[in-house]
């Protein structure tokens, strides 16, 4: 987890940053002039506008984390049943020439990745529904 946090954070930051920079400061000022407190403005105006970018960053970093094993092994070790990771398991089976076991593990990974992709796509479309033109 900790390892993934550090290797994946840049993906989220890099996707959110340009959106944040493009936000019109007038939106915040408008919300202020309508009496919104800083907290309300963040929750109701800024955050919803960042949601699509946050989701994109999240799915990118998740995709990366699924296949990652270098960073995890260095930080968490590879203790059986507690810090073992699927990608490494598949790799070990492959080295043992146990192709069917490797393929089984890999297909679980593949499936998870697909589900994740579908979910984020759906959420992103929902969050961006206001961009649809009449």
């Amino acid at each position: 987890m900790v390892a993934m946090f550090f290797t994946s954070l840049p993906f989220v930051v890099r996707t959110v940053q340009p959106v944040l920079e493009d936000l019109d400061p007038a939106l915040e000022e408008a919300a202020q002039s309508l009496g919104g407190s800083d907290g309300t403005i963040f929750l109701r105006v800024i955050l919803p506008l960042l949601t699509p970018a946050l989701l994109a960053g999240l799915s990118l970093s998740f995709a990366r984390s699924l296949g990652e094993f270098g960073a995890v092994i260095f930080i968490a070790g590879n203790r059986p049943s507690s810090t073992e990771i699927t990608a490494l398991l598949a790799f070990i089976r492959l080295e043992e020439f146990n192709y069917s076991a490797a393929a089984a593990i890999a297909s679980v990974l593949l499936f998870t990745a697909f589900v994740m992709l579908a979910v984020t796509n759906y959420l992103q479309a929902r969050a961006l529904r206001y961009m649809a033109r009449a």
Binding site: A30, Q32, G36, R44
Partner: peptide, 30 residues
């Protein structure tokens, strides 16, 4: 936020993720 002014911005600054109705209601809700 306490001055009680209505400000209309040059480029409208409507909240793009809210409907027209939600935009108008924003000030009353907060």
């Amino acid at each position: 936020r306490e001055r009680g002014v209505g400000f209309v911005f040059q480029h409208y600054a409507l909240f793009p993720h809210m409907t027209v109705g939600e935009n108008v209601a924003f000030g009353m809700k907060v």
